Amino acid sequence: MSAVVFIPARYASSRYPGKPLVALTGATGEKKTLIQRAWEAAKTVKGADAVYVLTDDDRIAEAARGFGAEVLMTSSEARNGTERCAEGVAQLASPPETVINLQGDAPLTPPWFVEALIERMRDPAVEMATPVLRTDRETLVHFVTDRQQGRVGGTTAVMRGDGSALYFSKEVLPYVGDLESPPEVWHHVGVYGYRPEALRRYAGWAEGPLEKAEGLEQLRFLENGVPVTCVPVEARGRVFWELNNPVDVARIESVLQKEGIA
């Protein structure tokens, strides 16, 4: 099965402008931009035939080419990474069987998360899939603290018994009333797998009210009746966290240093 990894990146983030070019210090003291660290993470994925950075910003494109990435320029009209992926796949000479969207703000994404997603996409009945991770106590405390302090942190997923998604939210769902005995909370990992046809259809749909309210692109699939398959993955001791706010820089750098990531 052919699979390509796209890394959508935009400069004009509403919560953190210029985020892809923010420098993160690794275990050796070397500074690398967020987009470079995301690309390096993608390059370790087994089963990916190619990795592309997708952007509409010349600054990001120049930086990406500088560290050796292949770049596809997309339009400024793309409202989210999924729409950017739809534009990207249209530029390929032949579409792959699976398109992987690895968010440019998630450099701590372990390769086995993406590999599990590629494996799940081998089922031809799956149109779109995304990994989910059962939260550990440290992550759950970060989630709850962010919301209490008015920040939007990670995204949670609520699923049916068969693993298909019921909903995704930037709130902590289900409600956590007691951190000493919390309910099971699933952290949505910012990676998606799509069929090229699903991307084409997605690009033709308008934003729905839930997508607008939450700012979560995957809700457009649910709002249009397309099942989203959740793929449980294991952290294997690795702390997973996206860079959503400036406060996350220190969190991510601490993990880079702990894990010995240069």
Rank of each mutant, 00 (worst) to 15 (best):
Leu34Cys: 07
Arg15Lys: 11
Glu40Ile: 04
Glu234Gly: 03
Arg151Ala: 08
Ala235Ser: 14
Lys212Asn: 07
Asp248Lys: 05
Gly177Ala: 12
Glu180His: 12
Glu180Tyr: 12
Thr156Ser: 06
Leu256Phe: 15
Leu72Ser: 02
Tyr16Phe: 15
Val228Ile: 15
Glu127Gly: 11
Phe143Gln: 11
Thr82Met: 05
Ala206Gly: 10
Met128Thr: 06
Leu24His: 14
Glu115Gly: 12
Trp241Cys: 03
Asp146Pro: 01
Ser254Ile: 04
Gln149Gly: 03
Glu127Asn: 13
Pro96Thr: 09
Ser164Cys: 09
Glu97Thr: 14
Lys19Ala: 13
Tyr202Ala: 01
Arg59Met: 04
Pro95Glu: 07
Tyr167Asn: 10
Glu30Gln: 13
Arg147Val: 08
Arg79Asn: 11
Lys170Gln: 09
Gly193Val: 03
Met1Asp: 07
Gly260Ser: 11
Ala93Phe: 06
Glu242Arg: 15
Pro111Val: 06
Val22Thr: 15
Ala86Val: 03
Lys170Met: 01
Val22Met: 11
Met1Gly: 09
Glu87Asn: 04
Ala27Pro: 08
Ile252Trp: 10
Ser94Val: 14
Asp49Tyr: 08
Arg147Cys: 13
Lys258Arg: 15
Asn224Met: 00
Pro95Cys: 06
Arg120Pro: 01
Val231Lys: 00
Glu83Asp: 13
Ala86Ser: 13
Gly29Lys: 14
Val185Trp: 00
Gly88Val: 02
Ala3Tyr: 10
Asp105Cys: 11
Thr98Pro: 10
Pro107Ile: 05
Leu34Trp: 04
Ala38Phe: 08
Met121Gly: 08
Arg59Ala: 15
Thr82Phe: 02
Leu243Ser: 06
Glu217Cys: 00
Ile252Met: 12
Asp49Ile: 03
Ala41Trp: 04
